[in-house]
Design a protein around this nucleic acid. Sequence first.
DNA 1: CGCGGCGAGTGGAACGTTCCATTGTGGAGG
DNA 2: CCTCCACAATGGAACGTTCCACTCGCCGCG
Lengths: 333, 333
Amino acid sequence: MQRVRIKDVAREAGVALSTAALALRDDTKLRPETRRLVRDAAARLGYVYDRSAALMRSGKSHTIGLLVCEITNPFYAELTAGVEEALDEAGFVVMLANTSESVARQRRMLERFREQPVDGVLIMPATGTPPGLLEDLERWRLPHATVVRSFRRGAHAGPDNRAGTRLATEHLLALGHRRIAFLGGGARNSVSRERWDGYARAMAKAGLASEHLPCRTDIGEAAALVQALPADGPTALVCFNDSVAFGATLGLLRSGRLPGRDVAVIGFDDIREAAAWFPPLTTIRVSPRGMGQAAARVLLERITQPEGPPRREILAPRLIVRESCGAPLRPKG
Amino acid sequence: MQRVRIKDVAREAGVALSTAALALRDDTKLRPETRRLVRDAAARLGYVYDRSAALMRSGKSHTIGLLVCEITNPFYAELTAGVEEALDEAGFVVMLANTSESVARQRRMLERFREQPVDGVLIMPATGTPPGLLEDLERWRLPHATVVRSFRRGAHAGPDNRAGTRLATEHLLALGHRRIAFLGGGARNSVSRERWDGYARAMAKAGLASEHLPCRTDIGEAAALVQALPADGPTALVCFNDSVAFGATLGLLRSGRLPGRDVAVIGFDDIREAAAWFPPLTTIRVSPRGMGQAAARVLLERITQPEGPPRREILAPRLIVRESCGAPLRPKG
DNA sequence: CGCGGCGAGTGGAACGTTCCATTGTGGAGG
DNA sequence: CCTCCACAATGGAACGTTCCACTCGCCGCG
């Protein structure tokens, strides 16, 4: 009652080992009848392909390592789903590591992946990742791509963050707001910088002053901050992302203000919950799932053509108008 | 500029290949000086361990396959994080597959994992999984464990769902509620059955009639259902889980009722957002992260002791009182 | 003084594929 | 009738570890 190997299938089918191997890969060098014969024998014996042996000989593992900065964040969870979906379609399996924004853990898992070995790695860099990591990846000749957060160079897929917050800010300006603050962000990563930048530039262009309300990306923290905001504070909030925006609406509710009527709130990401929120959240859609798929494609291209230049795919965001900026509010007491 | 192998390290250190291999595993059969010598040589050459070769010879991949029914659900995302954390600590790597509740995809990914090969699989069975899957796993002699949703037998870690909804229902009864409905669930899986069961039994014990408001586990759907509820409907809702409870509070708000004052809402799971919600959600805590860790432990035990009986770890839930059930109802009702 | 046992290190087979070079066969072309 | 080629199938080395059996000194003991 041992495991069934190609050898056993070959014996059962009455052909040579290498013939059986060829047949199982459905190689056209073999006559269809022979392939048939071997397949039937394999099915009869319950043969299971052993990728580890194949990997050892061929050097291709058909496996990629995925480094997620925080999988419990719905946005990254959705992104992970997109990556997994696209890679599965291409016949790849995903090795998962959740770094929880720990640079040390990220480093450790990367080395693990290298041992495994994987054919490439897809990274959402933890906040504070040193540029040395990119250099290591290059030195190791490990095909890699980043998603959302990026390094200065290397394959990448992510949203156009500047365009996103610009869109958001201009929408608020068009609605007549003048005192518009930027809520959240402030972390030392490319996304925070770019989103702030898009907002600040739009404000400058309108001849208005920027105002930063920094907080961590956490519903509770954002809620507390907004709850404490004075009545003569900003009339509109461009939020770092939807989670922060959710916090903002909760904070307004708790202090007796109605989001959308008293203070306009606009998010970023358009995560699944945004449409169902109260009030439904106006936000910038970037489709995390689509970005995950794009990133997977970019990485696969890197793996198959390691010599070509790394591709950077920047996805255009879209403004989704709902009710948190004072569009038709439901008449409600 | 080839990859560095143990052979190369051995040559550099001036020892035999097998000695070098032993040294790299830090085997106590070797003198500390020798181990040192080899380690230094390995570091000098930039040696990277190749797990695939080790796997082939030893049959141990130190890899487990994780089948998640829906990773974009925050509860399962948190659970995934727990699994990954615990397995990493034990030196295992996680292969991820998101089945999106598709039985076909689940089956396909399971066969892929088998080829990989993994040392075991951790499964959150997709809704509608046939019992045949368990039989296949047993026939394949693939160590396995389930989390949250379970089969009739086999290793498992999950919450005591009956006790959870019983706790919730008794809490509402103690607050004076009489007309209590169960919102959500209804899917054909063990969790739905058990949660309904705990609620129904508690109601029966109090001599009251059960009432089922079935809906899918989706904020929007729950919100719409609750919004349409008549004013003389139930005064309290035991929800299938927190997402459904979130939907319920949104539905109440939209129809001009205040959750906690007009209608009591109680959730299940205590996901991260529950505490920050408006109003903060009273719920049943099951700690998805803790459950993920427990499941990982149970599976590892299965892998190291395949002969022993599979362990089933049922975690006691805890009632977390916040504000969504209001202060005790006055006799007025 | 011989023998057993132990510590430290060595040599080589084995794992299950893939890949390459090779064989045998039948038919077309000269 | 021989040569050459394409096709179909075969044989065996190689991948980088692990594992087991083995050697070689050296020490203690009867």
